[in-house]
Each structure stands twice: as structure tokens, then as C-alpha cells.
Computed example of a mutant assay.
Amino acid sequence: MAVELKFGDPLLRLHGRWDKDNTSWWAGSGFDIVASNLSSITVHCGDLNSKDLPVGVSINYAPYETRIFNTGSNTIPLPANLLDKKAVVRFAVEAWEFANLHLLSVVLNEGAKPEPYKPQKLKFQFIGDSHSSGQYCKRGVIDCFDWIVAEELKAEKDIQAQPGAALTDIECWGNVHGLSFQFFKTEDTRYYYNPKHNYVTDWDFSRDDPPTHIVLFVGANDGSERYNVPVLEFAETYKKFVDLLREKYYKDQPIFIFTNWGKFKETGALRTYYDNPSPYHAVQEHRAALGDKNVFVVDTHGWIGWSDLFADNGHCNEEGQKVVAKKFLDWLEQWGLKGEERWAALE
């Protein structure tokens, strides 16, 4: 008889954000399975599933391969050599909008023996906009610098990143709320356009494995020529946001605040924003005055060039994402962070 793991089964390890209807939100949300004697996996999705949803699937920590999920049964091809060893199969929604995987159950072959997933001790929480969601990349968030960094360090990750969203709670590029509001909700900022779920619910942070490190990369949309949020207003919003993170959820984890690297125009010319005065250093100084010595500014100036971008939209292309990942990994190494040596779930 086949082995069925229904949504909510402790052997079906969820990551990211999921609502009460068993539906995921935000790029990178997904689930993990560990099992021995594994020869088949079928994922059953409900009516709330986004049409032709791209989901990255990684088997035993090999590179992710994209599978398309729709309502109904979705069969995952598996290599034949899994029968004689433990297998870890990871699933992550690649899409940066309408990232709704409606998970009903996962069915394994008869004789499969699932077991609990062992998470890594190291875990990142990334908060950002298009630069952290992999917008326009072939595999979305899977190709993004934050995903690459976490994989390289053998770390878990949660990513709350939405293209076009400001940190300030304003309508911005079609997002009806900013991240200073939306981060605390289950749903991402595209909820407004979802006819099946156009409302928000508070996220229960007790559902998360607490992160060990937090990365904030925001301001590109606040500082855009169209919205142009004044630097002092942006800085005050940023301070209050970090204060709230510290007060309610993340007491003493290192927080890494990315500066902007500027915006490139069609000519390759660079327009900088929020540089003088720097709101990023203002946040760091504000927290330090409160006794918080664990907020660090990551200076990203000069990290990327025109060749690292998609020429028609100014976002990092796949190779540019690798450049950013390498720069941040080098920065983290100099800061003193070491990745884990092995994936615990395979042991």
C-alpha cells in the first residue's frame, strides 16, 4: 500500500509561509521529505494552486530542477539509485508572484519509509524586494543571490521578498502595502490580486524555526524616481521596522543591512540614492545607541556593473546574481561566519 503524507503530517516538513488553506505564499516557500526505499513521489495539489506553477526540486542536495505543478497529481521523476539509501527531496516555489502551491498530500511508493527532516543549525531570514526574489531570472528565487548564499553555506532560509515593494507602507509599483506592513503577514504583497484570497492574515512566527542571521536589502523602490520617499522618512521607517523585529521576534541575531548599489540606466550610467546621509548607517547607529551591537552595514557599492544586469530592466541576471552571492560570501567570511560542514538530513 502506498504511503500518504497529508498536509500537517510532521513527516512533511514545511518551510516558508502557508495559510490555513494549505497554500504557500512568498517565493521560496515549500516542503521537504526524507525517506528510504524511495522509488516514486506524487504531489497532489488542490484548486487554489497557481496555474503552471514552477517549483524547484532538489534530490539529495543536487542542483534544483524546475517542475511545473498544477491542480491534481504531479509526479516527480526520481533516479533509480535511491532504493538502497536515504533520500532527501526538497521542494521550493520559484515564482516571485502568485507563488501559491495548494498542497493536499504527498504519496510515496509502497515500502517507502519516511522519517523526520533534520534542519540545519544555520538559518537565514532574508527580507527584500526584487533584488532578493530573483525577478526575471529563469528559475526565479532559485537563481537569486540569497538562495545561492544559503545553499553554499549549507543553511536553511526563509525569504520574504516582493518585487516593486517599498519598505515604507505605501502603494508601490502595484503593491498595495510596503514590507514594513507585509512582512508580518502570511500573504505576500500580491495577495490583493488573488481572486481566491484577497485578504491578509497575521503570520504566526512561532511556526518558524528561528533564524540565526537576518539580511535586509530594501530601499530600491522607496528611493526610485517615481516614489522618491525622502531619506529621513525612509530612515525613520527603517528604524521602527528593525525595532519591531527586535522587540517581538529576533532578539539578538546578527542583522546585516545592505546599502544600495545604485540604479543603472540604459546607457550604463549609475544613479545612486540614499547615500548622503546614509539611512543604513543611521539605523545601525540608532540600534547601537540602544545597546544593540549586532547590527552591521554591508557596503554593496561597486558590487555589480552593467554587464551583470538584464539590459532591458536593470535587474541582476543569473550571472550577476552569482557575482553578488560571491561578494556577500566573501564579506561573511571576513565577518567570521562559517557554513556548516554537512547536511544533517542526510546523516
Rank of each mutant, 00 (worst) to 15 (best):
G16R: 08
W26R: 06
W26H: 07
G28W: 00
S29H: 15
G30P: 09
L38Y: 05
S39A: 15
T42P: 15
C45Y: 11
G46M: 11
D47N: 07
A62T: 13
Y64T: 08
S73H: 04
S73T: 15
N74M: 14
N74E: 13
A87M: 15
A87K: 05
A87C: 09
K113W: 00
K113T: 00
P114T: 05
L122K: 00
F124M: 02
F126L: 02
I127E: 07
G128M: 01
G128T: 00
D129A: 07
S130W: 04
H131C: 12
I148M: 11
Q162I: 02
A165K: 05
A166P: 11
D169T: 07
G174P: 01
N175L: 10
V176M: 13
L179R: 05
Y191T: 02
Y191Q: 08
Y193M: 00
N198K: 07
V200W: 12
D202W: 00
P211K: 01
L216W: 01
F217G: 04
V229G: 03
L232S: 10
A235F: 03
R246P: 11
D252T: 14
P254T: 12
E266W: 09
R271W: 10
E285V: 13
A289K: 13
L290W: 02
G291S: 12
D292I: 00
T300N: 04
T300C: 09
W303Y: 00
I304A: 07
G305N: 08
W306H: 05
S307Q: 14
S307L: 09
A311Y: 10
C316T: 01
C316N: 02
E319Q: 08
K322C: 12
G336I: 00
K338D: 14
R342P: 01
